[in-house]
Amino acid sequence: MPTAAVYTCRATNWVMLVIGIPIVVLWTIISVKDPGLNNILVTAVWLISLLITAVTSTQRVTAGPVGLAVSLGPFGFPRVTIARADIAHAEIIDLPSGPWSSAGVGWRPRRGWMLALNTGPGLRIRTNSGRRVTVSMRDPAAALWAMGIAP
């Protein structure tokens, strides 16, 4: 089995950046022009919009002999780490595109955690405890080889 020392992949969700940044700017303009009681609501919406834009804008995946690490956002937070010893099953999947696609960041009842900024190839992992994590990446087979798992 060929092995790679470490597999890394970075993805940028340009659609979220193109949509999210103007929304944050719009909420900033609204909060400056209308100081008052609504300012608390506008500030809360501004902070939520900024947080969602930051977290879902970039993703970095690192796979190696010690396991899988996924960092979201420009500062690497939140970060999900799965040790190689904790992986019970891993499979290569295709995240379909469309209005009800599987892409997104969040938890879904039957699919577990989704850390998929883009559609296309991905890796679905089930841990020894039963937790499921789906991650989008360009070359999931290379990630499996780097972790010492045959695809």
Rank of each mutant, 00 (worst) to 15 (best):
T3H: 06
V6I: 15
V6Q: 13
Y7D: 10
N13T: 05
W14A: 14
V15K: 01
V15I: 15
M16K: 07
V18W: 12
V18K: 10
I19F: 11
I19Y: 08
G20N: 05
I21D: 01
I21H: 02
I23C: 13
V25L: 15
L26Y: 12
L26I: 14
W27N: 07
T28A: 14
T28G: 15
I30A: 13
V32T: 13
K33M: 15
K33L: 15
D34S: 12
G36E: 07
N38Q: 09
N38Y: 09
N39R: 08
N39I: 03
N39A: 12
I40E: 00
L41T: 09
V42L: 11
V42Y: 05
T43N: 10
T43K: 12
A44H: 01
A44Q: 13
V45P: 06
L47F: 10
V55N: 13
S57F: 06
Q59M: 09
R60H: 13
V61Y: 04
T62H: 02
A63E: 05
P65S: 13
P65Q: 05
P65Y: 01
P65H: 08
V66R: 10
V66L: 07
V70M: 10
S71Q: 15
S71T: 14
G73N: 06
R79W: 08
V80T: 14
V80C: 04
I82W: 01
I82G: 00
I82M: 03
A83K: 06
A85F: 04
D86K: 05
I87K: 11
A88Y: 11
A88W: 07
I92V: 13
I93K: 01
D94R: 14
L95G: 08
P96W: 12
P96N: 10
S97I: 05
G98H: 14
G98D: 09
P99A: 14
P99G: 11
P99H: 14
S102Q: 10
A103R: 15
G104Y: 03
G106I: 11
G106L: 10
W107M: 03
R111L: 14
W113D: 09
M114F: 06
L115C: 13
L115V: 04
L117C: 01
N118P: 00
T119D: 03
G120T: 01
L123C: 06
L123G: 06
R124F: 04
R124S: 07
I125D: 01
I125V: 15
T127W: 01
T127A: 12
G130Y: 07
G130W: 02
R131E: 13
R131Y: 00
R132L: 15
V133M: 05
V135T: 12
V135R: 08
M137V: 06
M137Q: 03
M137N: 02
R138E: 04
R138W: 01
P140W: 09
A141I: 01
A142Y: 02
A142K: 06
A143S: 07
W145L: 09
W145P: 00
W145V: 04
I149G: 03
A150D: 15
A150K: 12
P151E: 04
P151M: 06
